[in-house]
């Protein structure tokens, strides 16, 4: 259910009545997307060491940006996550881009919702209760170049087939990397649009919503 409502939200749905044939199509594409996707995840958890005003983890990656330090301020450990739906979804989307544009856009949205769900499911399966939200390179002041270090630490190419293009885009396209703090108590950190480069002209915000999943 949550995949469907998220996918509809990505598609710009905001309460309009959806004709039955369209609804059936959405359901069929959700089913197809789940069948075609080959979700894979990799994660590593590192203890955070704090010295002076900086944070260190026993891996070759520098997490010292203002936003990440803020994110991890109350965390004991940090979890690095890589997740992907695999190339089969990319291939299906390419096929539909030439044969059925309606299916293409629905599958694109469903896949975006599904990959978030894959990460949520992974986090829920781990024996931790208190996470910060997932932060990714490209958000706030975290440079996209950090993707390289993140993927190298995770051995994401070898483990889950997640790689970068030279312009630092992830392939397969329906992939997520994340930096998540793990702590003892509820860290009271909610995701927000602060610091997003697109804030002033965001299509989601104009419709009164946001691009990320809203959690209670």
């Amino acid at each position: 259910m949550s995949i469907k409502s998220e996918a509809l939200r990505y598609l710009g749905h905001s309460g309009q009545s959806i004709p039955e044939d369209q609804m059936q199509l959405v359901d069929a594409v959700i089913e197809e997307t789940i069948a075609v996707a080959e979700p894979k995840t990799v994660h590593r958890i590192f203890s955070i060491e704090r010295r002076d005003d900086s944070i260190y983890i026993p891996a070759e990656i520098d997490l010292n940006t203002k936003d990440i330090k803020h994110l991890l301020a109350q965390s004991r450990d940090v979890m690095l996550i890589g997740a992907t739906l695999g190339l089969s979804i990319d291939r299906k989307l390419r096929y539909y881009s030439k044969t059925d544009a309606t299916r293409m856009i629905i599958m694109d949205a469903v896949a975006s919702a599904l990959i978030e769900d894959v990460c949520d499911t992974l986090q829920a399966s781990l024996p931790f209760e208190h996470y910060t939200f997932r932060f990714s390179p490209g958000y706030g002041d975290v440079p996209l170049t950090m993707q390289k270090d993140l993927l190298r630490v995770l051995e994401a190419g070898k483990r889950i087939g997640l790689s970068l293009t030279s312009s630092l885009l992830m392939v397969p396209q329906k992939s997520i990397t994340g930096i998540v703090g793990i702590g003892e108590k509820d860290m009271q950190l909610k995701r927000s649009c602060d610091g997003c480069k697109l804030m002033d002209h965001c299509e989601y915000r104009k419709k009164g919503t946001v691009c990320y999943k809203i959690t209670s």
């Binding site: 598609l11 749905h13 905001s14 959806i18 199509l25 059925d100 856009i105």
Partner: peptide, 14 residues
């Protein structure tokens, strides 16, 4: 006006 959403627009376009 927001009475239809993207998949409907694309179906009509196709």
């Amino acid at each position: 006006k927001g009475t239809i959403f993207l998949p409907q627009l694309i179906s009509s376009a196709e």
